[in-house]
């Protein structure tokens, strides 16, 4: 896909999605609105993971901490300080970015396995801490006020997602983008090119934390109730990852496509094939890792799509 057509497709999708709920003729049902809010929240998270995991090459297995933190900051700011939703969301976003910087300074020095597991551990620590500090409601959880219309969530998540994609496009075509990709490709070579890899990685992690926390904030208000096991669930980290990888990690649209398809399949199976749905995520991850490690975008950018693509992937990585 070239850049111009990518932008046009993106534009059309955005306009259709933007007007869909309010257009009298094509207005969509509450059920679909709800579904799309879920898709967009996950798309923001998958894209957030993509920045650090897909573009920078640091596969975080604990990005759920930003989601949980965003949810809790939004909730506490709305409940305890009676601050409006949107301002709370912005606070949450900055809290996410700040937290990314704080944990990023030590953990981004780690490579490979060690980074992945350290982030997984930090997710668990945050869950344990939230369960034990009084002002977060401990294990009981927090109830948020109930919003008047689900359109609020629809548009907030749409704007957040669109803003994220545009922001990412701009970043990637600039100096920071080159730095980020250089870090992923070869950190030593990047350092010798004058790239301050430490700062580049921290910036990427902060962007990831910023937007993932927004997703957490929207989720918190939307679901009206949060507790630590729900918003710090490590499975959420894995869902972000599989959505990004399934769509195409290291591409801008991949994670969005991945979030949409996976949420759609998951919803479809859970209503029609309950038993199959039970094995859906685990199975999808296993199959994707084996057959489609570079994601759908890579598959569809092949000149010829056929079984050979999958067979090649299997043969390439075994011993």
């Amino acid at each position: 896909m070239n850049k111009a057509s990518e932008f046009i497709i993106l534009g059309i999708i955005t306009v259709v999605v933007a007007i869909a709920p309010v257009m009298p003729v094509i207005h969509i049902s509450a059920f679909i609105t709800r579904f799309l809010i879920g898709v967009m929240i996950y798309a923001i998270m998958a894209e957030g993971w993509n920045v650090i995991g897909g573009y920078t090459g640091y596969p975080s297995f604990g990005n759920v901490v930003f989601f949980g933190l965003g949810a809790y900051v939004t909730a506490l700011s709305m409940i305890d300080f009676h601050i409006g939703f949107l301002i709370s969301l912005i606070l949450a976003a900055f809290a996410g970015a700040l937290f990314a910087v704080i944990i990023g300074i030590p953990v981004l020095r780690l490579k490979g396995h060690y980074f992945a597991i350290a982030t997984l551990g930090i997710g668990e620590i945050m869950m344990a801490i939230t369960l034990n500090v009084p002002f977060t409601g401990e294990g009981v959880g927090l109830s948020l006020p109930i919003a008047s219309s689900s359109l609020l969530f629809y548009y907030t998540s749409l704007i957040a997602l669109a803003a994220f994609i545009i922001f990412l496009k701009l970043i990637l075509s600039g100096r920071l983008g080159y730095g980020i990709i250089a870090v992923r490709e070869d950190e030593d070579a990047a350092r010798m090119m004058g790239i301050n890899t430490v700062i580049v990685k921290i910036k990427a992690f902060a962007i990831s934390g910023f937007f993932t926390a927004i997703a957490g904030g929207i989720y918190a208000y939307w679901s009206t109730f949060i507790d630590p096991p729900t918003v710090y669930d490590p499975i959420i980290s894995v869902k972000m990852i599989i959505m990004a990888v399934f769509g195409g990690a290291g591409t801008i649209l991949g994670p969005v496509v991945g979030a949409f398809i996976i949420m759609f399949l998951s919803d479809f199976l859970s209503t029609h094939f309950t038993l199959l749905h039970t094995f859906f995520f685990g199975g999808l991850i296993v199959l994707t890792a084996i057959f489609l490690p570079k994601g759908l975008i890579d598959l569809f950018s092949q000149k010829k799509i056929g079984w050979n693509y999958f067979i090649k992937n299997i043969k390439k990585y075994r011993v």
């Binding site: 100096r175 080159y178 730095g179 990709i181 992923r184 490709e185 070869d186 990047a190």
Partner: peptide, 17 residues
Amino acid sequence: PFMELSVLENVTTAALF
């Protein structure tokens, strides 16, 4: 080399920094 980037992009990265 940065395997996923073209020769030009490889060298541009260096020039940028």
